[in-house]
Amino acid sequence: MVKSDLTYPDQRVVTDQTKANLQPRRKRRTHRHTWLLYVVLLPVFGLLALTNYYPAFSGIYHSFFHWQPGYSSPFAGLSHLKDMLADSLWWQSFVHIGEIFVWGVTLGWIFPLLAAELIITLTSRRLQFIFRTLLIIPFAFPLVVRLLIWDFLYDPNNGLINKVLHDVGLGFLAQNWLGNPHTALLSLLFINFPWIASLPFLIFLAGLQNIPAAIFEAAALDGAGRIRRFWSIDLPILGRQFKLLFVLAIIEVLQYGVASQILTGGGPNYATNVPVLEAINAAFNEDRWGYGATLGSVLFLLILLLSAITLSVRRRKPNEKDLASAVN
């Protein structure tokens, strides 16, 4: 039909008419069967009600109660929120995820960005593909396997890190990395070093590879070197990607917990404690279900709030001015 549009202009009238005929027919069809559409959606909403809507509302609702599952739960008002504000462990856990966040958006981006820049500097497509694959492979390992391997690397007796330190004569640096409150959080942050096998790497690389070659050629002709190009073209063009990754990093860090749970259990002496572990601990170990629900709901509100703020910050577009200044 598209072809006939192009070859026989006069036939277009017919096509348009067919389309015009089609519109009301389609509408009638859908109207006749509207109830069928709801039938298709019903099981989806049924399941979501069971596993998402009801629990989310139940959690927020019970934040205002001394939740005693199986018994009547007395009204608690805002007392859980007051407890939370006075809970020093809770605030301390936010300091920890603050550090994790800052680490993640600095070092956790610099290495992937460096790797992506190096890859697009290669002229051989084949080599680009090979290095991308080699660098991303660790990403395909299960999270728990990655964590357990790093748990072994930090092992005080047989761990790779201490062994290597002894072998190169730096034995005095060897220590119980995860058992020492001063090094535990840092050890968690070093997991997956050099942090290239990650979503930021894939996104940076895709962003850089999508920049039209003409822009680079123009810049090169005007004498912009590799470093200049990085600051004046690559970084501004990646602006959108940075913003997206920033929001993802917020969402991720507020849910950070598996690494702490598996490697340190939040210890030693709460040195690696994080909000998620606080919430789970309150509910499952201390039987303070209402308080746990409060902490969980507060984390949800924080994610909404922080994502909304980040997304509403107006992004400076990589517009003609940037490109012009890059070329000048």
């Binding site: 629990p55 849910q255 998620v276 789970i280 279900w289």
Partner: peptide, 20 residues
Amino acid sequence: LIAILLAVPSVTTLIPLFLF
């Protein structure tokens, strides 16, 4: 109503869903 659930973290539903 469906898409908004992408913003709800699993910690929020974890405790109530467990009890349910």
